[in-house]
Structure formats: C-alpha cells, structure tokens
Computed example of a mutant assay.
Amino acid sequence: MDDLAGFLRTRRARVDPAAAGIPTDRRRRVEGLRREEVAHLSGVSVDYYVRLEQGRATQPSEQVLDALARVLGLDETERGHLYRLARQRRRRAKAPCGRVRPELLRVLGLVAGAPALVMDHRLDVLAGNRLAGLLFGRPLPSLNIARHLFLEEGEHGLYAGWESCTLDVVGHLRLAAGTHPDDPRLASLIGDLAMGSERFRRLWARADVRARTHGPKAYRHPLVGLLELHQENFALPDGSGMELVVLSAPPGSPAEDGLRLLAALDADGASPAEDEPSHHRPPAVTDR
C-alpha cells in the first residue's frame, strides 16, 4: 500500500532546486531534485540513494533519515511517516481490533450539544451520540468517512469544504497505510476508493500525509442548513488507533442554533423529539 521508495520519489519531485542552492537553466527537464542531487546534499552515495528509491536498500540509519528529511524539507508529520516507512520491514504494527470500551461509550453519551463520535484508523465510525447520527443522517456503525466523502456525497453533498476534506482524508489514510501496511481491510478500502473516485486516485498518487488534530469543518445539512463547526480530534492513549471526534459550534453562532434545531428533531428529521431534556438524559449511543 505504501513504501519508502515511492514516498522519497514524490518528496524529491516537490523540492525547488533553486531553494536548495542548485543552479537551474531552461534545459532542465527533471521536476524537483535529481537523485544524485539529493544524495550529494544528504551526504550519502548516489548508489545508496538510488537503491533506496528502488526499494533495494533496507534499514537506513537515523543519520541518513535525518539528512533526507532535511534535504527534502519534510514537516513533522512527513518526518514521522518517513521513519515508519523505513522500519516497516523490521516491525509490522498489528491492526487494532476496533472494539469500543463500555466506559468510552458512556463518555460519548455524556457529550451534549455537539456531535461526537469514535473513529478508527480506517475512518470507520465505531460509535456516536444521537446528534452525530442526526448530522450524518444514517446509522453511524455503517459509516466510513472516506467512502461517504468520495463515493456517496461528492462535491455538492454534506461536506461544504469538500476539497479540503478530501485532502485531509487522503493524508490521514496515507499515514494509516504507513502504520498498518498489512491491514487487509485498509487495503480493500483504498482499492475501492481508487476504483470509484478519480480525485482520490490523483491525491493518492501525490503521497501527501496529514495529521489533523483540530480545525474548522462545515456541513450543508438538508434540514438545518449550513453548520460551520470546529472539529477536535482526541487520540485515545491506549494504542488502539481510535480517535474521539467532537464537532462544536461557537457560542451564539448560527451553527449553535442549527445544532439546537437538529437536536430537537427525531432521527428521521420529521418532527420535534419528545425526549427528556439533554441534561436529564444523555444522548443515546450506537456501537458495533
């Protein structure tokens, strides 16, 4: 699904030779740096770097990886991804089982006034509170965010910032593929997305990685209109690869009013709910 050689090639093509101190002229036909230029700037032999890009060199040292990260201008997320790819053959990470602890479900149900859900590294939604179910308009355990984004909703669907969302999702899946290269379900997901979406294929070929922990997220909900929310991702500390995701609205904003209206609807959006006030009874949660 992912390898060190491909990542190095895409990062090399991204570097501006002039910024690296290499004179250029109109006859230059290579996009980015040449292999020999990366090798020279990194302090490794050309033969060794060529073998790295061909997948024939194993176990590069920390010094070599540090030098490559510097020359290729990698950010913190890309640097961590580079190190994981370089060590794939040494230690394979086992794919998490995906079970949500009852205690976590209880915490999820206590989140009031904001959609909240638990996702795994494949972007499968494992559980969510009632407001999250109303936001996405479907049972959450059947939802995969990547499939929903690329194969079901499309550019004019639920996601108001669709193009930005696609960058985040592909970058996340690239990181997941580097961490779990032997996960067959992840490989199947990536294959389905590549078969069904031209945009996914183009973004995947770029080999960009992203680790989004927070930021704006906007939705075009068919019942309550535009919801401009703020997303916070909380990685669970148990090594499961799961994240608790909470989508909140600024106080006094139209999005806060929209969430209140959404919370007053039945799951099918047909009529106001007759449930007890949310502070009396926490929203229901769903689980696999």
Rank of each mutant, 00 (worst) to 15 (best):
G196R: 04
A95S: 14
A205W: 03
G191Y: 03
E243K: 14
H81P: 08
L4D: 09
A263K: 00
R9E: 11
L175D: 10
R147K: 11
K217C: 01
P237C: 08
L229N: 08
R130C: 02
E37Q: 05
A19M: 09
L68Y: 03
R89K: 13
S271E: 15
H279M: 11
M242G: 00
E243S: 15
H280A: 14
E53G: 06
L117K: 13
R70K: 13
E228M: 05
A86F: 09
P250G: 05
G137H: 09
G171Q: 07
L110R: 15
L226W: 04
E76N: 08
T58G: 11
L4N: 07
T58P: 00
R147V: 11
S164I: 10
S248I: 00
R70H: 13
G32W: 04
L72A: 07
D120I: 00
L85T: 06
P115M: 03
M195D: 15
L186R: 06
L105Y: 03
L8S: 02
G171N: 07
V169M: 11
R206T: 11
S278Q: 13
E36N: 09
G133K: 01
R202K: 14
H180G: 00
L131R: 08
L65V: 07
R210Y: 05
L41I: 05
D238P: 00
R89V: 07
E274T: 15
D2E: 14
V38C: 07
G6D: 09
D192L: 11
G73Q: 14
V71P: 06
G252W: 08
G6A: 11
E76D: 14
E228F: 00
L8V: 05
P102I: 05
L193S: 06
